[in-house]
Design a binder for these strands. Structure first.
Length: 288
DNA sequence: GCGCAGGGGGTCG
DNA sequence: CGACCCCCTGCG
């Protein structure tokens, strides 16, 4: 496959740090020059901003313009969304100003499921390491600029890994969960194609929760960060819990409100855009 | 530098 | 509500 390039004018809702460091993805890495390089599906892409242009460059299986428009969610009007959310209250407005270049990626559903099962009770450097090792071991190589990258393994490819194999790659207690989930998806006991076509978040969530290693938080992340794009979910992790405690309950950071309580409040305040609000709040609380 | 303790994007039983 | 695997980080 040969290299492709795609350039567009820089838009307001597009910032590399905001997009790649807001916790939705694990395979994008910053280069010396400030650009980011990442692997998704069978593509290796570098993204940089230069002279008020966004430049996408790399190995792309299909047409790069189409691929990029889908992956970076260019069909959605983030300006409109931000305007709407900013009206809700001051704290949210502040967080939006802080992470104004966030976009939610349309990541492959299968990859997102496995990645977020791995994320449970884990830290980002280690999560990234595990996913790299999985890809190197079971995924297809893609060569670009004399460097070899590895696509995330397909369902079939990963199903070749035994629990012991996974343990050796450093998954820890998540080995069994990844193994079982892979089996369920491979045998179509959980059919991702059908899941992709479902409309209601409730229905999708119920099915995801049947997968080992997928609890409420992981399910919401999968729904928000993959091609499922359920914008109404509100993943509650330690950071979001902290920020919500502070902002709306005037409680000390560490106090533990029930997850359901926070979810309910989010739904009430942010409605069907709760998921995007969550990203601004999360990024703000973690970085600032 | 090196060794060691502490903790981490939760889930499960 | 406690255990869970283990890499990563920070401190002594």
């Amino acid at each position: 496959m040969k290299e492709q390039i795609y350039k567009i004018d820089l838009i307001e809702s597009f910032n590399l740090e905001h997009i790649f460091e807001c916790g939705q993805c694990f395979r994008w890495n910053k280069e010396q020059n400030g650009s980011y390089t990442g692997v998704f599906k069978n593509n290796v892409l570098n993204v940089k901003i230069e002279n008020n242009k966004i430049i996408f460059q790399g190995i792309c299986e299909e047409d790069i313009k189409k691929t990029v428009e889908k992956y970076f969610d260019f069909e959605r009007d983030y300006e409109k969304i931000k305007k709407e959310l900013s009206k809700i209250d001051e704290p949210l407005k502040t967080s939006i100003a802080y992470g104004n270049g966030i976009r939610l990626l349309n990541q492959d559903l299968w990859e997102t499921i496995i990645s977020f099962i791995i994320s449970a009770n884990n830290n980002i450097p280690r999560i990234k390491g595990i996913i790299e090792r999985l890809s190197k071991q079971y995924g297809k190589p893609i060569i670009w600029n004399e460097k070899t990258y590895y696509a995330f393994p397909t369902i079939e490819e990963l199903s070749k890994a035994s629990v012991e194999d996974l343990r050796k790659l450093g998954l820890g207690f998540r080995d069994q969960r990844v193994y079982e989930t892979t089996k369920l998806i491979l045998t179509k006991q959980v059919n991702l194609q059908e899941l992709q076509n479902k409309k209601s978040s409730k229905e999708i969530r119920e099915i995801l929760l049947t997968l080992p290693g997928v609890g409420p938080k992981v399910a919401d992340c999968i729904m928000l960060f993959s091609t499922l794009k359920c914008l109404d979910v509100f993943p509650v992790d330690v950071w979001v819990r902290r920020v919500m405690n502070e902002l709306y309950f005037k409680l000390p950071e560490e106090s533990k409100l029930k997850r359901e309580q926070i979810e309910a409040l989010a739904k009430e305040k942010y409605g069907n855009l709760a998921g995007i609000a969550q990203q601004y709040l999360f990024y703000w609380k973690r970085e600032a």
